[in-house]
Amino acid sequence: MPSPRRLKLIAVAAVTVFLIVIYYNSGRDAVKRETYMQTMQRAAQDRENAGVGNRLREAADAAKKAADMKAGPKPDSPRAVEAVMKGRLEQGPVGKEGDDDDDGGEYSAIDDLAGILRRSPIIIFSKTYCPHSRTAKDLFLHAYKIVPTPYVVELDNHPHGSELQDLLAKQTGRRTVPNIMISGKSIGGNDDVQQLEREGRLGDTIHSMGGKRIMKVLKLKE
């Protein structure tokens, strides 16, 4: 039988081992708890960052939509307008302005515009009471001899003038009059053509844009 002194030593050793095991396990659990807390904190931070990013994207999208609504619809590109008008110009004979479809259908502004553009390579959309329109018409009809003669559409006398003006605004980006078109493309209003005239480039511009449809452009003596 072990002596009392040996039993005492064995008991002390057992207690020491027990305490070491407890200390080791508690330390390992603390490390696990710390690692777990760090992982949870990182996950929470990631979720918060993702939420901020989503809110920023939503705010940017909302701002873009608000800006687009404030700016209104963008005009079609010149190439798109030219392509549409070219297809329309190649269709059928010219009818009267403002006529409904031959089959009795509803008025079509784009068909009406195509019919107008077939009347002459130069179209002046005007209003009878507009002084700027009168100045532009005087330049094209009296200061120059142009063959074929530019065709004038008085929107205030046209039965569907407002609808036609809406279409012009959409396709050319210009709602005001005069709106002067050569071969289906708008060259602007009175200020624009007067600037070309002052620079001595109006005749060349008419020739280059009108192409073979323009047979004569002669500046008349003042």
Rank of each mutant, 00 (worst) to 15 (best):
D46S: 14
A109L: 04
I20G: 06
M1F: 08
P4D: 09
E34D: 14
R55Q: 14
G203E: 05
E106S: 07
G184P: 04
R42K: 15
P93L: 05
K127R: 11
L89P: 03
L117W: 02
L56S: 11
R47I: 11
V147G: 05
E97L: 08
Q45D: 13
T172V: 10
M1C: 05
R33N: 13
D138N: 14
D101C: 03
Y36A: 15
V217R: 03
Q45Y: 05
E82Q: 15
I20N: 03
Y24C: 04
V147Y: 03
R5L: 10
I10G: 00
P2F: 06
M181P: 00
A14R: 13
V94T: 15
V147H: 07
H158E: 06
Y151I: 01
L155E: 00
L117T: 05
N49T: 13
G188I: 02
E48N: 10
R79K: 14
V81Y: 02
A13H: 11
I10L: 14
N179F: 02
P121C: 09
D156N: 12
L117A: 07
R88L: 15
G27D: 08
M37P: 00
D29K: 11
K86R: 15
G105Y: 03
V217Q: 03
D111V: 05
K145A: 09
V81H: 06
N25I: 08
G188Q: 04
D103R: 00
Q41V: 12
D102M: 05
D68K: 14
S77G: 12
S77D: 10
T128E: 13
V17I: 13
Q171S: 10
P148H: 04
K8L: 14
P131A: 15
D138F: 11
I146M: 02
G188M: 02
A63F: 08
Y151S: 01
M215L: 15
L141Q: 03
Q38S: 12
P78S: 07
M1K: 05
P73E: 09
L164F: 05
K221R: 15
R79F: 12
I10H: 09
V21L: 12
K137R: 09
N54G: 10
R79D: 15
R198M: 14
S186I: 04
S208F: 03
M1V: 10
G95S: 12
E163P: 01
L19T: 13
V31L: 12
A62Q: 13
R134M: 11
N25G: 01
P159N: 06
A60W: 01
K86C: 08
H142L: 04
P75I: 07
E199S: 12
R42F: 08
R213I: 01
E34F: 07
I187M: 04
K70V: 09
E97N: 11
P4H: 02
A143T: 12
G161Y: 01
G92H: 08
E58R: 10
L113A: 04
R5H: 07
I124P: 00
V94C: 09
P159R: 06
C130Y: 07
A143F: 05
G51M: 12
A43W: 03
V31T: 13
N54L: 15
N157F: 06
